[in-house]
Design a binder for these strands. Structure first.
Lengths: 157, 157
DNA sequence: CGCCGTGACTGGAATCATTCCAGAAAAGGG
DNA sequence: CCCTTTTCTGGAATGATTCCAGTCACGGCG
């Protein structure tokens, strides 16, 4: 779909325009909130909507909760973000898309980290009997305890 | 599975004692609601808490929502039930425990079905870098469309 | 075979993440 | 620069689940 006739951005606009590019290429309008949401998720993978709201407000000033949810949906729909929702915890968003990586979730504090299966290509992603379902994605979630929760007893929360 | 040395007890009390046994063995008290919850999930795998409430009420008469949630927690904690929660849908409970089977979830209607990985023993359940997490369970969820939703356009909702 | 204490159930209110709504503001094609 | 469409604002609503205080009953004990 998206060809790569990437114009070598203005020699003064580092990656600032990167987000803009991403949005335009995805056919989305470029808005301050959307750029801020993308920025918020850089270096803060697996943030909850609430985390993003806080970060964005810290960045732009005042932004409504809906604006953020709206962006998260739009960006997720456009494939710029990936959404994952550990059972019993609010949804989390990340910018690592495309590669089909998986997640570890801590039963204690809910922390999430990325993992790559040792088996390179989609391993057990081909169940025997699919009951007639047409599959398009396999999602793997590992449950356990993070280093912190494994040693000391579960934290406050 | 059901053996046939069934005492022709009162019409309606065939394996009635089975649930009682399960509960006692698990160190749980035997109560009407708990038995009804177990019964409700027989033949109705992947029911939501709400489904269970309806079925149990249909069976016992009037039961509070909490009683059911309480039971579902107790039974899940005792290992008699398994809980799974597809992103964006209410939690579902099933009686298939012990075997580490996985699930297919329909993006259209949220229907859930069991699947067994073709790769017999825990396949990709050994990620390379676990980031120090101590893992204890791998959960695999396949997303796609059920036969119904694949043909006709998505239902109401 | 009835009494008692602990654990289970009732009813109602509360919480949390997320969504719905209607109107105001802004993006960007013409 | 204007107009249409999409996005953002603020506030209310929803749905699943939980918290709470009081009542009830399972089942061990006498």
């Amino acid at each position: 779909m998206t060809s790569n006739h990437v114009v070598p951005a203005a020699p003064g606009a580092p990656q600032a325009a990167a987000g803009e590019h991403l949005l335009r290429d995805a056919g989305l309008r470029v808005t301050g909130v959307r750029l801020a949401v993308l920025r918020a998720l850089d270096g803060h993978e697996h943030s909850t909507a609430d985390d993003v709201v806080r970060t964005v407000r810290d960045d732009l000033g005042s932004v409504s909760v809906q604006a953020v949810y709206d962006c998260l949906h739009a960006l997720t729909g456009a494939g710029l973000l990936r959404r994952m929702e550990p059972a019993g915890h609010p949804a989390r968003y990340e910018r690592r898309v495309g590669d089909n990586h998986h997640h570890v979730v801590c039963r204690g504090c809910g922390a999430v980290a990325d993992v790559d299966c040792v088996v390179g290509e989609a391993p057990c992603l081909m169940p025997g009997d699919t009951h007639g379902f047409t599959l398009d994605l396999a999602e793997v979630t590992f449950w356990g305890l993070c280093p912190a929760c494994a040693t000391g007893p579960a934290p406050a929360r």
